[in-house]
Simulated assay, not measured.
Amino acid sequence: MQPVIVDLDVIRDTSRDAAPDQWNPRPGSLEAIARLSRADRRVLVTGTPVRDGDPATALDRLTRLHNRLSQAASNAGGQIDAILFCPHGPDTNCPCRPPRPGLLLDIALRQQLRLELVPYITLDQGPALEAGRTAGLRCLLLGTGNTDAAEPCFSSLDSAVQYLLDETDNAD
C-alpha cells in the first residue's frame, strides 16, 4: 500500500471562525480520504495543533479531535492509518514542529519510506510546506494557487486526490 501524508489543516476547517480545538471537516475532505482508502493508499495525517496553554490539556483535546476525525473518515468509507503529531508547544524549539522537518523524517524512518516518492498534501503556504520541502517530500498544495510554488496546487483535497489517482492509472 502506497502512503500519502496529509496535513491536518488540509482536512479540517481552518477558517477564522473555526475554533482551534474543534474539528469540522473541509467540504469533501472525508470523501477524498475514502477515495484514497478505496485506491489502497495508506493515509497518514500529520499536524502540530498544540499552539499554547497547558500541554496536557492540549493533548487531551487533540486525542478527542483525532478520535472524531478517525470516526468521521470511517463513516465516510475511509480509513486513517495513523495520525502523527508533535505534542510540544511552539516555544519548545522542538525539531519535529514545522517548519523543521523532524516529524516527517521520523515518519519516513519508522515507516521505511523514501520521502521523494511520497505525496505530501499540505497548504500552499506556511511552516508545514517548508517542513515538507526540507524533508524532500513530493508536495501537493491546497490553496488559492496564487503562489510562485513549483508544486502542483489544487482548490480542494478531492482534486489533489484525483490528480494522484490519475497518475497511478497512467503509470499502469
Rank of each mutant, 00 (worst) to 15 (best):
D13W: 05
L84T: 12
G53M: 04
A34L: 09
D81Y: 03
R51G: 11
R42V: 14
C96W: 07
I5S: 10
S155H: 09
Q162S: 15
L115F: 05
L115W: 03
A171E: 14
L105A: 08
A73G: 07
A160F: 07
R12E: 13
D54H: 03
D52G: 05
L129W: 03
G126A: 06
D166L: 09
L123D: 09
T14W: 01
R41Y: 15
R68T: 12
D21Y: 12
L44W: 11
Y163P: 09
P49R: 05
G77M: 04
C94G: 09
L59F: 05
G77F: 03
N24P: 06
F154D: 00
L8N: 13
L113N: 02
D158N: 10
L164C: 07
V50Y: 01
Q111S: 10
L105W: 00
V4Y: 00
P127S: 12
E151T: 05
E116C: 12
D172E: 12
I11N: 07
G78R: 01
T46M: 03
V161H: 04
E116I: 05
L36P: 10
R68Y: 04
L115E: 03
A72K: 02
A73H: 02
V6K: 06
P119E: 00
V50I: 15
V6W: 01
S155V: 10
V6F: 02
T134M: 09
T57W: 04
A73R: 05
G77K: 01
V43K: 08
P101F: 01
R114F: 08
L164N: 08
V161W: 02
N67S: 14
T46S: 11
L69R: 01
L123A: 13
Y163N: 09
V10L: 04
D166H: 08
D52I: 05
D81F: 06
S159M: 03
R68W: 06
D52C: 10
S29A: 15
Q125G: 12
P98F: 00
D169E: 11
V10G: 06
G77D: 04
S74P: 01
Q79C: 15
H88V: 04
R64Y: 07
R100L: 14
T122Q: 09
I80T: 10
P101K: 02
P152Q: 00
L8G: 04
G102V: 06
G89A: 11
A108C: 09
P27E: 08
Q111Y: 12
L104N: 09
P3N: 04
P25Q: 00
L157S: 07
G28R: 09
C86E: 12
A18H: 06
I11C: 05
V10P: 09
S159P: 08
G143Y: 02
Q2C: 06
E116D: 12
D91H: 11
D91E: 14
G132A: 05
T48L: 02
A131R: 07
Q111W: 13
P101H: 02
E31V: 13
R64H: 14
A108P: 11
P87I: 00
L140G: 07
L142V: 13
S29T: 10
T57G: 06
G53R: 00
A56V: 15
P27N: 04
M1A: 13
L109H: 14
L157E: 06
N93G: 15
P55F: 01
R133T: 13
L62K: 08
T57S: 11
T57F: 06
R61S: 10
Q2F: 12
T48H: 15
P49D: 00
S15K: 02
N146Y: 02
D91G: 10
N75I: 02
D172G: 14
I11L: 15
S155Y: 00
T144R: 10
D7G: 08
